[in-house]
Design a protein around this nucleic acid. Structure first.
Lengths: 208, 208
DNA sequence: CTCGAAAATGAACATTGTTCAAGAAGAATC
DNA sequence: GATTCTTCTTGAACAATGTTCATTTTCGAG
């Protein structure tokens, strides 16, 4: 009996189905929004029983949170792919990457930020940490651009900046209450970053 | 028969109950979040039947939207109460008023921004317009601070600025993913507004 | 007081998340 | 290969909740 590594046939099938279920749930959320996600639809699409979904994810929230977890992962991957050579370009790249991800996966991102737990169950720690990590990605380039500031200050600044960018994008992409016309969003966002950096005393030539 | 003005006993009672139902629904949303709002709970609390709720609001969304409508109204009232004497102070006042409202009525504001309609029914035009109106309140002071800019530009700037403030506040108040420590939020928000204005070329002495 | 319109009622229904006892499938042991 | 034990799968049944509607009640008009 091989306790450790052996990937039994059972395990393989289990993982395969788990992946399938997540994929299906993600497609439902992405195309029709979180509210349209139904256990029965997922089970039907995966050609398995309702019970199997519960077996795999515990409850409905479990499935949603799994999709959300992968959404943060994808977002983080995309943000980390932004070149870090030049801090100014990196900041713009981060804002732009966030915008790109948000417009391509609007419903997935909404699911991440808007989903409320049943009852008063606490929001999972790990997802929270992952979101914070993503938000912290603006920290490094800002430190390079503001070498003389108190690091604690810069940490807060970066979170503020990311929150602001998040607000502009999430309201800007909300097709109902269009706060900013979509076509312009991209350039306006860049303008916003520039303006804010200028306010922080960083001019375009300030690169390290 | 008096067709026009007579406020019949029936009408009085109807209005009275409508108000009661809205009040109850609001309290549920405010204290326990939108997800916890249940038709039966509302009906029970108002000591009337489920049917009466439907009679009054058409469907569940109707009740939620009515509460949300009053939430924007209250927010707008509060924002409009900010003194307009000095544009710089007014901008800070608006940001601060928004923060105040958001922290006192976190769940109500969330309900406004996060509620999704059933199926694909369109978001009500009037609420949309009211939110846009509220967002536009930053426009006037910005115009005074930036008299030389293209007015269209300023209009977009003000919406961007409000969206940014909204992002900072809504993420900042989210007790799960705390992007900014709550105690600091107020001063940080003021700092943000200052920084951004500085980036726009407005210094503290620039008042009209 | 009578009549008709409007409102109120709540049982019944539809949808959807959740549970669980029974059965099927697979692994371990001989 | 048969047996046994564990684990997974199933789907019927249940629970919670939004919605409908035939019936009853209320109430103003004549």
């Amino acid at each position: 009996m091989n306790i450790v590594q052996e990937e039994s046939r059972r395990d393989r099938k289990k993982l395969q189905r788990r992946t399938l279920l997540i994929e299906i749930a993600r497609r439902f959320i992405a195309t029709k929004g979180l509210r349209s996600l139904k256990v029965r639809d997922v089970a039907d699409a995966a050609k398995c029983s309702i019970g199997s979904v519960y077996n795999e994810f515990g409850d409905f929230d479990g499935l949603i949170l799994t999709v959300n977890r992968e959404t943060v992962e994808a977002l983080t991957t995309r943000l980390k792919a932004v070149p870090a050579d030049d801090p100014l370009r990196q900041l713009h790249g981060l804002a732009d990457a966030y915008l790109g991800f948000a417009s391509e996966h609007a419903n997935l991102l909404r699911s991440l930020f808007e989903h409320r737990m049943e009852d008063d169950r606490p929001f999972p720690e790990d997802i929270l940490a992952m979101v914070m990590d993503a938000f912290a990605l603006m920290h490094a380039p800002l430190v390079r651009l503001l070498p003389d500031r108190d690091p604690n200050d810069v940490a807060l600044l970066s979170r503020m900046m990311f929150s602001a960018v998040h607000g502009i994008i999430s309201l800007g992409l909300e097709e109902r209450m269009v706060a900013v016309p979509p076509e312009m969003l991209r350039e306006r966002l860049a303008q916003f970053v520039d303006t804010h950096l200028a306010g922080l005393g960083v001019s375009r030539g300030d690169q390290v």
